[in-house]
Design a binder for these strands. Structure first.
Lengths: 259, 259
DNA sequence: CGGCGACTTGAAACGTGTCAATTAGCGTGG
DNA sequence: CCACGCTAATTGACACGTTTCAAGTCGCCG
């Protein structure tokens, strides 16, 4: 029961179907996804079947993983955008992080089975799940892999810390500008930014609704709209058709970093 | 050069000098501190000298570890309160977390040598440092220890996430009340709350200045003062002589959680 | 066509920040 | 012993940023 059939798979994914995000996927670096996809495993041989559990595709707005649920599977985003969300008793929501292709939903899930927050698809999302037990075993056999996981964990924590600073000490304009720039940097690192069109103008996929921005920045959707309008009026950015263009990168960075 | 003299020690600490925080110290659980202190090492034998590097005592307000500095030592708080602080270019500060006895300054320091933020003593602080290399080696030899480290890491991340929610979605009153309650819970878990005096009234050491509260909650010291005055006026709390008393726990929790 | 969700815009309300004046506490040095 | 300067905290008046409420547009889909 170790060699052949991978059945729990919801939608079959051909081994050759590597997503754009895979290029920068931590787990691709770790040879896990690639191994699970049937590619060569590098020096360390890992049996894919013992680790990969399933691959899923969910439509936008669907829940990927519920808060408080117990899972013995660890999900990794392969395609699309998602968000970790907490809902307060009064109905207001806070997005803790946006998940892009290549992201582990939460590194904490490697060591505990209970998710602390809801994970929600923003676009259509494809993700794979891996068996925690198999993943952990592999980790302990490979200090190199482990070291890379630690880096991912540290990065997750750094993003959280930056987020705290943004929410605690920055104005609405700064928060929104920084959110956009952070996302664009993360996309760029994954090789997911469209080719630069004209000099210095940055263009990116931007599937977020304004209420997502509001939930992430601790603002109201109304105010987000006003700030974005102001950005547009000042020729800093342009949004149309789920694509965001930074027309004046220098000026936009000034808004974002400023203070 | 491995066996005998531990010299880098700034102030000698007798092996028997176990601090109150040690009871709940993650590293005591892990048998490290206790091992380094000369106690028995449990089932897993660890050579203290290869791990402990030094013990230090610094006065209030002194810097324990600077941002961007490189260290091959990992500091753990043994006594007193400290804070991880980030200073922005405009001079405003954000406290990312308060460090209590038993806390690793940052679990990230186990895997990277660069600290991302300043760590500052609030009271007089005693801390020990341990060699990263030795600590990591020990970790890998002991899955049990490792599992506990993972728990500490997860808790650190959960606190950060809660912090994000507080800053993003809660009012000044809620933030301040929650900060106080969080600290009291953390102290209680360490057995560091003074004995309950009268029924239901909670009393705790509270060395924070109002500017610490302001830096942690993303508010101004002036506003913190107003909120605390209001709490006092409503008979919720009392602060005097670096001691905080929650006079009306039920009411105070209502203020904190409410919404 | 009607309905719905996403977004926009304006006016008013509210919470928090800023500025300024004042008090209390504390260690230092005359 | 008191005067001094320093930091921490308090309080009030006012300014500003953000929220709330409300009305309205636009595009999309049944």
């Amino acid at each position: 029961m170790n060699a052949r059939p991978r059945h729990a798979i919801v939608e079959a994914i051909a081994p050759s179907q590597v997503q754009p995000g895979c290029a920068a996927c931590h787990f691709d670096e770790l040879n896990w996804c690639r191994a699970a996809l049937g590619g060569q495993c590098g020096q360390t041989s890992i049996e894919p079947a013992s680790i990969e559990q399933a691959s899923h595709i969910v439509p936008a707005r669907r829940i990927i993983c519920r808060a408080q649920d117990l899972h013995d599977a660890v999900p990794i985003i392969c395609r699309g955008w998602a968000a970790s969300v907490v809902t307060l008793s009064d109905g207001s929501r806070q997005i803790l992080s946006f998940l892009l292709p290549g992201d582990l939903v939460s590194t904490a899930l490697l060591f505990e089975s209970r998710s602390h927050c809801l994970v929600e698809a923003i676009t259509e999302v494809q993700f794979r799940t891996f068996k925690r037990s198999g993943l952990k075993a592999t980790l302990f056999k490979n200090p190199d892999l482990f070291e890379k996981l630690a880096q991912a964990w540290i990065e997750e924590k750094n993003r959280a810390d930056q987020f705290i600073i943004d929410l605690g000490r920055r104005t609405a304009d700064e928060r929104i500008a920084r959110l956009i720039l952070n996302l664009s940097e993360r996309l760029a690192r994954r090789g997911m930014m469209p080719e630069p069109t004209t000099s210095s103008v940055v263009e990116m996929d931007f599937p977020l609704r304004q209420h997502h921005i509001a939930d992430a920045t601790g603002l109201t959707p109304v105010h987000v709209s006003k700030v974005l309008s102001e950005f547009r009026r000042n020729g800093l950015i342009k949004i149309s058709d789920r694509t965001l263009t930074v027309l004046d990168p220098a000026g936009f960075h000034r808004v974002a970093h400023t203070r």
